[in-house]
């Protein structure tokens, strides 16, 4: 595996790319602590005023909770429908598997604007516009592939003998799945759920259409702010989001480390 030594110039490139990827983000974080009222880097002084501003703003806090609620519901629904699907895919050879793959593919690859426009029109009939449930259901469509893929990966690595051992020693097949398979596979499910949540928290276009007026999630509020405001309060909100993303990232890493059966 050591066939190729990474040359010095290659390393330089890698460092440059990493810098390119990460530096801008660090800038945002730095500016959020700026004491100045405009966006300048490096910031003239340090202050927490922008954080105070958004944490005390009812609007921002409300948006935060909406994002959490929608995200949690999305993760929940995604797991509810995605886990059984993963079992079906891994354990059964069924007629129409290609059709089914196409279905999941379409959920994955449809451009957001199309999803947004179509579901908005659809919801008008159902009265689901401007509801948290409505947005969550719309986001679930995009969240499902994450749950299915990760759960299926865990299931694939699952040693069927564990279920057999459970049944031999007295467990009804359903009991075996509940007590043995699901707990062992739970890492994949959780990773999928986290991805589904994060995907929903960051989603913009569908949110603009379905829940973009009075009550809106963080992504919409952030979007408005980015276009309008010139002070670092947006940077502070962004940093909060970065923090949340980092937390989820660490969470996933911990889940995978503890479980050991999932590839990075």
């Amino acid at each position: 595996m050591e066939t190729y030594k990474i040359t010095f110039s290659m390393n330089i490139l890698v460092v440059c790319v990493l810098f390119f990827l990460l530096f801008p983000v660090l800038v945002v974080v730095a500016i959020s602590f700026s004491s100045a009222e405009f966006l300048s880097f490096p910031p003239p002084g340090l202050s927490l005023r922008w954080y105070q501003e958004i944490f005390s703003s009812l609007d921002w806090v409300a948006s935060f909770w909406i994002t959490i609620k929608v995200g949690a519901l999305t993760a929940f629904f995604s797991v509810l429908v995605g886990v059984p699907a993963a079992f079906a895919i891994i354990r059964h050879n069924f007629f129409g598997k290609d059709m089914f793959n196409a279905l999941i593919l379409s959920a994955l690859i449809t451009p957001p604007i199309i999803k947004a426009m179509s579901i908005y029109l659809f919801y008008v009939q159902l009265g689901l516009n401007n509801t948290i449930l409505g947005l969550a259901l719309a986001h679930t469509v995009s969240g499902i592939p994450f749950v299915v893929i990760n759960t299926a990966a865990s299931l694939k690595n699952f040693d069927l003998n564990l279920e057999r051992a459970a049944c031999v020693h007295g467990a009804h097949p359903m009991q075996a799945i509940l007590k043995i398979t699901l707990p062992v596979v739970s890492a994949g499910v959780m990773v999928g759920a986290v991805f589904a949540f994060m995907q929903s928290a960051q989603e913009l276009i569908v949110s603009i259409f379905v829940l973009g007026t009075v009550d809106r999630p963080l992504s919409v509020k952030l979007w408005e702010g980015v276009q309008v405001s010139t002070d670092p309060s947006i940077a502070a909100a962004s940093t909060v989001l970065i923090g949340v993303a980092l937390l989820s990232f660490i969470m996933v890493a911990l889940i995978k480390r503890r479980d050991g059966s999932l590839a990075p």
Partner: peptide, 28 residues
């Protein structure tokens, strides 16, 4: 069905339940 046969089995790969302690495995 398997679970009603009153048997025990040892597998080549052991098939121990990884999320349970030795006690829970044996008491299963």
């Amino acid at each position: 069905p398997t679970h009603k046969r009153g048997i025990g089995m040892v597998f080549q790969s052991y098939a121990l339940f990884p999320h349970m302690t030795v006690f829970d495995n044996v008491a299963f």
